[in-house]
Design a protein around this nucleic acid. Sequence first.
DNA 1: GCTAAAACCTTTGATAGCTAATGATCGGCG
DNA 2: CGCCGATCATTAGCTATCAAAGGTTTTAGC
Lengths: 165, 165
Amino acid sequence: MAGRRTNAGGRKRKMRFSYPAEQSVGHQVRWTHRALQRALEVRIRPYGITPGMWYFLRALWEEDGLSQRELSERAGTAEPTTVTALHAMERRGLVVRTQNKDDRRKSNIYLTKPARELRELLLPQAREVNRAATTGLPAAEIEALKRTLTKVRANLATTRRKGAR
Amino acid sequence: MAGRRTNAGGRKRKMRFSYPAEQSVGHQVRWTHRALQRALEVRIRPYGITPGMWYFLRALWEEDGLSQRELSERAGTAEPTTVTALHAMERRGLVVRTQNKDDRRKSNIYLTKPARELRELLLPQAREVNRAATTGLPAAEIEALKRTLTKVRANLATTRRKGAR
DNA sequence: GCTAAAACCTTTGATAGCTAATGATCGGCG
DNA sequence: CGCCGATCATTAGCTATCAAAGGTTTTAGC
């Protein structure tokens, strides 16, 4: 596959001789993220769940009735993203949104019964993705991976607070 | 921060007692990816480059005159993504698209002079992101991280080929 | 040499995500 | 009370991404 001459008639200019940073941590993380995302997607799609809904479902399975702000924090998304995801979930009958009686700025999001029942079907899918991803890796290596990734995030969080730009 | 009662008037149902998988490899990789993506974005934005253009610039700095198919492979994006990204880059005067004389199905993408000159400004930004991300990590730990991520990707690629469904 | 398959690019239509600006409500303080 | 700043949600407008389907050109097989 792909091996043929693909550029006859177009002059190429080879500027350097190797990929200097296809080996960078950034690239590694990016590609791994895509692979994981895709693996999750194919497993939840048969249940009519999109990746965009997944993290909100996770949060609500954990604690039902959260506000949109709280959901944004737990899912790690910006608030407009949360708004549109929740609308989609409402249309699909996964959640109901109720206005908070004590503070009418807030809404509380509750799972419907079918959405609660999806938990037992979907959490195993997530576990399966992680199992597949870590097959053949000793537990120590997985722990080391998580520890290192945590350090990387901490590094980026502090440079961000200091003088990025 | 964030510690106040935020749900007065909305009944919450605590369904389980802990985050069973906020510790999963999937979550770790997802959040790290976001942090890296964001760090890169703030550094290239001042030059008028969006993250969507970045990987194509990288590929073309490496080898100019690639076809769109080749660019898709190197950037790791689907072809429609490549089409729209290149149109945006053309509008910004970063690339010109020429029809291949020997094979009229193909187009070859060439960087403009300003885009070539951006290389010396932007590559240091990418290096800086990686440097920031790995500050304080011994080289052996970084190598281990990359090795493990590579294994994870390999795992996912094979389960994909087999019976994902 | 003709036709069918493959290769390449594009369009269409959908999801996901962000920043910035707007709207609505609440709370504190004078 | 009454206003003003903070808080919560939404809208507007943009970038990024993909799968599926379509159009054109080339290649391969007979």
